[in-house]
Design a protein around this nucleic acid. Sequence first.
RNA 1: GCGAGAGUGGCGAAAUGGCAGACGCACCAGACUUAGGAUCUGGCGGGUAAUCCCCGUGCGGGUUCAAAUCCCGCCUCUCGCACCA
Length: 828
Amino acid sequence: MSQHPYPFKEIEANVQSIWEKSNTFRTAEQNTRPKFYCLEMFPYPSGRIHMGHVRNYSIGDALARYKRMRGFNVLHPMGWDAFGLPAENAAIQRNIPPGTWTTDNIAHMKKQLKKLGLSYDWDREIATCLPDYYRWNQWLFLQFLKRGLAYKKGGLLNWCDQCATVLANEQVEDGLCWRCKSPVELRSLEQWYLKITDYAKELHDTLKDLSGWPEKVRTMQENWIGPSTGAHIDFSIAGMDKHLTVFTTRPDTLFGVTFVTIAPEHEEMENLLSRSDNRDLAHAFIRETLHKRTTERNTEIIEKEGIDSGIRLIHPLTGETIPLWIGNFVVSGYGTGVVMGVPAHDTRDFEFASKYGLPIKTVISDPEKNPAGSPLEAMTGPGVLVQSGKFDGLRNDLAKVEITRHLEEKGLGRSVTTYRLRDWGISRQRYWGTPIPVIYCDTCGLVPVPDQDLPVILPDHVSFTGKGGSPLAEHPSFLHVKCPKCGEDAKRETDTMDTFIDSSWYFLRFTDPKNTQLPFDRQTAAHWLPVDQYVGGVEHAILHLLYARFFTKVLNDLGLSPVREPFDALLTQGMVLKDGSKMSKSKGNVVDPDLLIDRYGADTVRLFTLFSAPPDKDLAWDDKAVEGAFRFLGRLSQKSQELVSHPGFLPTRTPPASLSQELRLVRTKIHETIQDVTRDLDGDAQMNTAIARLMELLNTLYSIDLQKGADERMVLQEGLQVTSMLLSPFAPHLSQHLWNLLGEEGLVADAPWPELDQSALVRDVVPFIIQVNGKLRATLMLPPSTTESELRETALNDEKVIRAIEGFQIKKVVHVPGKLMNFVIGPG
RNA sequence: GCGAGAGUGGCGAAAUGGCAGACGCACCAGACUUAGGAUCUGGCGGGUAAUCCCCGUGCGGGUUCAAAUCCCGCCUCUCGCACCA
């Protein structure tokens, strides 16, 4: 190994120190060059980087370096998504303060990223757990509050009594607390919410404009927001001066309603049941259902169950009396939490009605089938209305419109669009997060922390019992505070913010990371935003990317953000797999980037992750295949060394005027490579094929015998030099080393992208494909300018073509100039 | 169940409707060697003695002079959502 011509450790350390010393990647605020904002999703500082990070950041770095050489002023920052639960768990398990644990992890991971040679402007580094950053979370929260976009609301949440904390859905396992295994119950609790539903329509409708986003991500967000058009229809309550409103997408089936079903946790439930004879049984049913909902959360299909509430409703159009049932299958929080039951035309209602013997009334007939007899299943397809009064005979799609219009005229309904998206619950009963900046005063109520008192500092020294509950509630000097309004004793909010808040605007902070007056300066942000290229894992397709879009729109409405959409183009890289599954500790199939870098160098690791699959597809890790990338860099290094060691070596870039046929073809290959690599990077960032082109070029360069003459050495020189430039986005260390070795001064990162020599692209002869009935029969090497008749003549003199045509008649000849000729033959 | 995406050698993968399998891994042969797990050169979809020829891009149809690519139907896998009215 010591004699290996590719001493990567030396080269990489050396090149990294040059970058460090010259501040190569510090971004200047200037307007002489067009801007390019390249951003990769910042990591959670878990302790060590993994191959997913390596892939993510190699892709982003290649793009940043490429754009830089193309003349852009590139902003390429990095930071730390530093709040979160693992830090608290580490604190409990190992008795290390979360802040210390996080800081240590950041230091280690930063070292690892530097070893990879990523071109970040580290002067802009941010860590969300620092008051410098999270004070602006607090400030922004208060802006939301002022605008009515943050509010507090009670709701049913998973509660573990033993741990005295709320649990996320993912933390409930088979109805038990994931940590202490005690039963989880639903408890009504107050929580802070952000009103993302106010923006549901815009978040949905502008998705179609995000042409730089993968179709897949847009579709996922579309489904998540889930708009659904239909109608609200009012059913008045018998014996009360009130009504219940249902949401339906099928107003055309209104005449088929035989019951109405309400969610067990509906807000009006107590009110309603106070008038019911069936009150006690209904209460028992609700209790049981809510209990089951926690214990049977993970079982796929819960059987439909319900009970007659005893309440009666009046059908808005027929005036019929309709029973109100309480049903476990009705989702509260979607629509109105009340649905009309049309068993004849809805599979769920049919199931429910069949079970409880409720009547089934057909109101849409399928012209194909005989409507006589009692149906065996719900008919959900299209048809014509029957038993629907004056709407009889109408096609059901038209009836939707007509019935809704009729209801609107009578003031009994209206057409609406509902969204599946719910408001964003941001309270967490945890320590390691941004304190929510509000104070509770017995006299003044809820008081926002005044701007001048920000930041509300997260205290350093807290005790972790491991028993759950927020440590902040146990921290007297944090908890107790004077009311900013009246000066009396008051208490702080002890919940902290969801960490997704941190990542919802960090891309704006990067443009102005040291601002102490505002989260960022609008003008500065206006220069850089939107992010031109965002790169990250598809696992953030919904939550992070939706929240970031939401924040950007709100901040735009607040006059802060210069744009309404944060990310112009999005690249979601695939996972790194090993042995067919995602790398994970539990599977024992992780590959440690440090070991790989130590063994092969950062350039090899980067090159392999970019080469082995297109960026958006999953990457199968293969220890052996990594050596292929390593060999390629070794061969490149070896050839360059051989050239500069030759006594006749001249560090010149000027290509000789007249060359042999063979060398002219090599130059053609060199310039075709420039063309292809540029096209691959400009288009869909197909780095795998770009690197393949560079491998081809090196294979071609290996065919040159540099002992032969000065022409050979000059062409080789040009080829290697071009390679060192084209390769530098992917393997920047070796590229820099070769750049200097081959006689150039300074940094290849500062060099302009190589230019095409159009004259070198011209070939004397090109392959012409000759087909007979669409099948390849010959490949003829002819000048590109060959005319149709010349081509035809040459082709018909070709032995194989003659044999294929013999005995048949030529019916037609298809000619594609410069490319192909197809003889269509038949019996003749 | 709904929605989206993907099926090409032993493997990772390439192919503006025009040479299927570029490039890499693995494998095979040769060269240099005391040695090769270094390096260089060549081979490498299947059938075949063959450089001829035939077959071949999940399956079945279709459009076209020409289909991995476009259209219709099906199968399989992956991902997302899932009692959303």
